[in-house]
């Protein structure tokens, strides 16, 4: 005789107890924490604000007080400050990458796998 599926013992879709991909198991909360750590977001926000504020403020703060109204030097200073922000960003990005590699070495390659899954 043909066997029948025992429907009463089967789990419905709502009762699934394994997490598939990003979909959580029943009773668990889904992982909504941001994939990018807060320190990186703070760094990016700081550089964004620095890029906007530092050149303009250095121009207007120094044009009358330091350079006695010589707007050429103040403009050149603003351009130099913009480049200083860029150099600072390059250094921070290099340091970020090195700390990532150290983290991978410390966790024995496990965290690298997690990073790719993210």
């Amino acid at each position: 005789m043909a066997t029948r599926r025992i429907i009463s013992e089967e789990k419905t879709l709502l009762e699934k107890d394994d997490s598939i991909g990003s979909s959580p198991a029943a009773g668990e909360k889904s992982d909504t924490s941001p994939a990018v750590p807060a320190s990186v977001i703070i760094k990016l926000l700081a550089f964004t604000l620095g890029m906007i504020i530092i050149p303009i403020s250095s121009y207007f703060l120094t044009v009358n007080s330091v350079f006695n109204g010589n707007s050429t030097y103040a403009g050149a200073l603003a351009a130099i400050m913009a480049n200083a922000v860029l150099i600072g960003y390059i250094f921070v990005a290099m340091a970020e990458d090195q700390s990532d590699q150290e983290g991978v070495a410390g966790a024995g390659g496990r965290s690298k796998e997690g990073k790719k899954d993210r």
Binding site: P55, Y59, G75
Partner: peptide
């Protein structure tokens, strides 16, 4: 493919921002 590289890959975007700062400085002058 490599989310860990995004921080370093943002350098051209920062450099493009500097181009706009140059124009802004001259416009103000």
């Amino acid at each position: 493919f490599r989310p860990d590289l995004i921080m370093k890959c943002l350098i051209p975007v920062v450099m493009s921002g500097i181009i706009a700062v140059y124009s802004l400085v001259i416009s103000v002058l």
